[in-house]
Structure formats: C-alpha cells, structure tokens
Amino acid sequence: MSDITAAPAEPLRKDRAALGGAPGIAALRHIAPPAPPGPMSNALVFGWRAILKFRHVPEQLFDLVMTPIMFTLLFTFVFGGALAGSPGEYLQFFLPGILVQTVVFNSVYSGMGLSTDFQKGLFDRFRTLPIWSLAPFAGLMVGDLLRHLIAGGIILGIGLILGYRPEAGVIGTLLAFAMLLSIGFGMGWVFIVLGLLVRTPMTVMTLGFTILFPVTFASNIMVDPATMPGWLRSFVEVNPISLMATALRGLMSGTASLSQIGLALIGPVVLTLVMAPLVLWLYRRR
C-alpha cells in the first residue's frame, strides 16, 4: 500500500541496496499452511525430486550403466567362448544375470544419496516439516525403481544389439522386469539402513560393494556352479542372488516355474519385512 506514495520509494530502495538487504521481504505475503497433504502426496513430491535429479545430474546414469556394460562386453567376448562354447551362447546365459547384478549394485547408490542428504542437513529440514515421516524414503524408492528401469532397459538394449534373444518374448521380458523391480525394492532397504547408519557416502559405497562383490560373484550370475567345489556350490545354490538370477533366466526364456519365482521373491520379501521397520526405528532415533 505504501508503494503508491512514490516519492520516498527511490531513495529508500537505494538505502536498502546499500545495506545489502532484500527489499522484498517486507512485501512478502503472510501465508498460512494450506490443507495438509496426504502421505501419498508427500511421497510423490520426493519421487518428483528423484526425477528432477536425473534431469540435473544426467551423469549419474553413466555411473549406473558403465559397470554392467563393461561386465557384459568383457564376460561375453573374453570369457564367453571358454565358458559356454561361444560368446553368443554365453550372452544368452549371462544377460539375465547381469540384469540382476545391475539392480543389486545400483541399490548402493540410494544408500549413498541418503547419506549425502543427511550429511548436507537436508533431512533436518524434512524432519521439521509436518509431513509423513516415511515419505522421503518412499520417494527414494520411486527414484530407485526408475533408475532400475532405465539401467535395466539400457543393458537389455545392448544385449539385444549383441544378439541376445529373450525366448519368452515381450511378455516374459515385462515379467522379468517386474521381478527386477521387486529385487531392487527389497535390496533398497538394506542400503537405506546403511545410509542411516553410516556417516559418509563414500563409506556407504565401500561397505556396500564389500558386501555385494562376494555375494554376486559367488552366485550363478556368471557361471554355472557345477564346476565349483562342493562347499561353495552349496552356498551358491542357496544364495538369494542365484535364486533371483535363476528366476530371471526362467522368465526371459519362458521356462520359469512357480517355485523358482517364489524362491527368488523370498529375499526381497524378507528384507522388506525386516528392514522397513528397522528404517523407521533408526530414523526416529536419529
């Protein structure tokens, strides 16, 4: 209202500029909170944030797919012939496995992201907002699933170019991706817990890969365990990662049995049931 009296406006503005202040604050409307949004709406905002990150930091995609692409090329062309007779035959065996590995490895990044957010104090802001307390994690999951879809799509695309053919066709591939997302969802919780417990993102990564390397290599992702020593084979056969890879192979080649699918889902279901309440507890305690 005082803006109408034009005379003092000019010197006043100069005055404020000299103070280095923000002349607009006084004009800022008082805003009362709108109707409180529901938990779903809160979660979607965090999902939107994850999507924005892709736009602003596209290079993160590079991190996500470089390792699996290198693995695919190396294993197919360097070891493929020796392991399966020909690179083409090996790729047919290896591709569903590397999809599982991609998703499992990429779950580490959500733990790193979380640890970064905590370190930067971003969560302090979120926790002083009147929102559903689990919304940030739900949003993190949305971002994760998106990352898994994109990375999985790129690896599958490269596989198709190199000659991989999913015998179960489009339906089988879609089912396989649904399975991949379930795996990613389950594994995500592990690294959210790690992100909550560990102070620095680098430590989350180091710890994550220290756990994941032995578990993914001592599985049937790369080679048939038939030639492994007995003690190792008995571990590989019950390793949840092997069960996941077996189910994915089955789904993509159209030979999956219900029991294979069920066994593969045990890991993600158990992880969700155990880790989700743990996340809530750790978060509230922090």
């Binding site: 944030r49 924005l52 990150k53 602003h56 930091v57 957010d117 930067k120 104090g121 971003l122 969560f123 302090d124 802001r125 002083t128």
Partner: peptide, 12 residues
C-alpha cells in the same frame, strides 16, 4: 528451522 549448514538440495 534454518540450520547451520544450508539444508538445500544442491543438485536442484
């Protein structure tokens, strides 16, 4: 609350 260190998403 505005904490001691900017609680902002630096990537956005």
């Amino acid at each position: 609350m505005t904490g001691q260190f900017a609680s902002l998403d630096e990537d956005l």
